[in-house]
Design a protein around this nucleic acid. Structure first.
Lengths: 364, 364
DNA sequence: TCAAGGACCTAATACGTATTAGTGAAACTC
DNA sequence: GAGTTTCACTAATACGTATTAGGTCCTTGA
């Protein structure tokens, strides 16, 4: 199809060679004028000027694709998610990340490539090509709970600049995450201070860092408050909550802590179960939510109360990730390249002192 | 920097020439096998197989940049706005467009380039390079109230596929817009049917198609209902509304129609003026809003009532625009390439029959 | 046996820019 | 005035893939 265009030269968009002809210099000179000369190389002012004039005259604009192929940069950052859906939906808890990334990219004059199509392809077949695609950009941001290690490792090996949004275990992978550990510990501390000594922590089955960190924080906070942590952590997919709730009540549990997931399913399931059990929150049971994105915090069952817990600064994570990525691209990252942002405690209305009625009074 | 890599061949990502060497064929053959042969060209099964094997072995993945440079497509669609801010903010009324575009792009396996950075650059200096940049993609979507004609015309001349989201006057420009004319006429008809015979239509000063169409619809609806349209249209920047409101009341105006703008400023200004004037809506004054994006409709001053009027199917416009763009890229657009989508009437709670109290009763 | 035709593949080139090695000329050095 | 610098620029090549115009060799048919 290339050769199908005999290119009526007047109608073609101008390239450097056109400028070169018009200014009576070589294409290389045009590139040097337009792109800037390397250290210590001189160009006559007159030459520079006539090239600039010709470029202006012809309405020249560099072709970003060619620019990129010739190993320069193209001012584009990629954004790739391993979730099946891209978080353009407002309801999606990852959405603030997108907002933050976009804000900072705009501020930095970078365009953004949303790898939505290839992400989808990758989810159907486990196609490494999909991830490899991000190389059109100068660098790429990744996020999502679950990450295929292979493609990422490959990018690392190739020296392709990227930043993960969320903490990662793999050594050497730059990331911007949230300090779930401290924040979770603080929440548990708050519960303990309110008088709760028997609590449960509800988490998902998988081993995503976001879950691991929250559990660690919960346990750390519990131990710091002198609580018994032996039966504290409960893994659930949300289907057995009614039974759980019943037994916890009998065991004297007065507070439940839940982790926020990207869909918010765990919390929703718990809320529903609490309502079914006819429990009032926080009167009969205190609840705490570990990490909703700022501003998307839901309200507790039965009342208009906002969930107590902490907020995750997703938007700021997005912004910071863009900054870090640009530093990596420019080759001089300001350390650290693995960053954890503090989370904002939220007082909310779902934590209260345990009441003296019902099984809650039982001590043991 | 290109030549700085003596390429320790093991560590470089494989290209077609590597496969060629491994399979004992030429690079061209590799391309033919991988990309598919043109009509009527044959390849030995054994050759094909060994190329495929080698490709698999080496973990080959085509370089999207080179692919694009070689004049093929790259599965990327651009999204460019002429607004100064990209509508990632939920509050932004254009936001649903972004959602729609993203949805459909994902569904069609296309990646999305948000030209946020270059858009910003363009707003600072009127840089044609910024728009030209969209050519990295196979095609591009544009939107925004105000459009520099030059760059767009240039793209048309170059035969670059693009679709405008919103109606355009320029002949030949493909677009997906909303049928503001019919929808606006319907709203005025509704007001007339409720007994309003003196109304005002508030619009902005500029001549964006979105405003022009609404005005045409308002006038058409008014004439169909036999209303006097002579003083109906009022252009305002929102600063003189208090005075306007007062005189309208004296003239017996019982209803005001406002157009929705991307920021919602006009509506907000009117709402504030109505409150300052101590008027109740719809008791003292009926209000109608022409075209908020679905689901973002605000509530009227003083009460929880939703504005009456119509909704703009922005999300669907986004989706349809992606479809149209893909048709254009494939070269066989299903006509028409200029499309208007119907708007959804919204009953709302800000239209009521004019009351018999106050100046409203005056007939003339 | 020779030409015609087909099957299968390769050489060459294009896409548009970036970069480096090098060239010719002028200016300077001693 | 031969050697050295400096200046100002160009030739050549690389980036990785797509495409087309042939080129070989092998069958066929007459």
């Amino acid at each position: 199809m290339n050769h199908a265009k005999p290119s009526p030269v007047g109608r073609r968009r101008p390239r450097q060679s056109d400028i070169a002809r018009a200014a009576g210099v070589s294409q290389a000179t045009v590139s040097l004028v337009l792109r800037g000369t390397p250290e210590g190389m001189a160009l006559a002012k007159s030459t520079r000027q006539s090239v600039l004039n010709a470029a202006e005259e012809l309405g020249y604009v560099p072709d970003p694709v060619a620019t990129r192929l010739a190993a320069a940069t193209n001012g584009m950052l990629g954004l790739y998610t391993f979730s099946t859906t891209f978080p353009t939906e407002v309801a999606h808890s990852y959405y603030p990340i997108l907002v933050g990334v976009e804000e900072e990219a705009t501020a930095q004059g970078q365009d953004l490539i949303l790898f939505t199509g290839s992400a989808r392809a990758a989810s159907r077949a486990d196609d490494p090509a999909a991830v490899r695609r991000v190389r059109v950009a100068d660098g790429c941001l990744f996020f999502g709970r679950h990450v295929p290690e292979g493609p990422i490792r490959r990018l690392t090996e190739d020296g392709f600049p990227f930043v993960y949004i969320g903490r990662r275990d793999e050594p050497g992978v730059p990331y911007v995450g949230a300090d779930y550990v401290s924040a979770s510990a603080e929440v548990v501390g708050r519960l303990a201070a309110a008088g709760h000594h028997h609590l449960r922590y509800l988490r998902e089955h998988d081993q995503a860092p976001a879950s691991v960190d929250r559990e660690e924080g919960v346990l750390r906070g519990a131990r710091a408050a002198g609580l018994d942590t032996s039966a504290m952590v409960v893994r659930t997919d949300g289907h057995d909550l009614d039974a759980h709730l019943r037994s916890w009540r009998e065991e004297g549990v007065t507070a439940v802590v839940v982790e926020q997931t990207d869909t918010g399913a765990a919390l929703a399931a718990l809320g529903a179960a609490v309502e079914r059990a006819g429990l009032r929150c926080p009167d009969d049971l205190s609840l705490a939510l570990l990490g909703a994105p700022t501003g998307t915090r839901g309200t507790a069952p039965g009342g208009g109360a906002v969930y107590s817990g902490f907020d995750v600064p997703m938007r700021e994570m997005g912004r910071d990730a863009v900054r870090l990525l640009l530093e990596l691209i420019s080759g001089a990252p300001e350390p650290p390249t693995r960053r954890l942002l503090p989370c904002e405690p939220v007082a909310g209305g779902t934590i209260a002192a345990p009441t003296a009625t019902g099984p809650n009074t039982r001590k043991a």
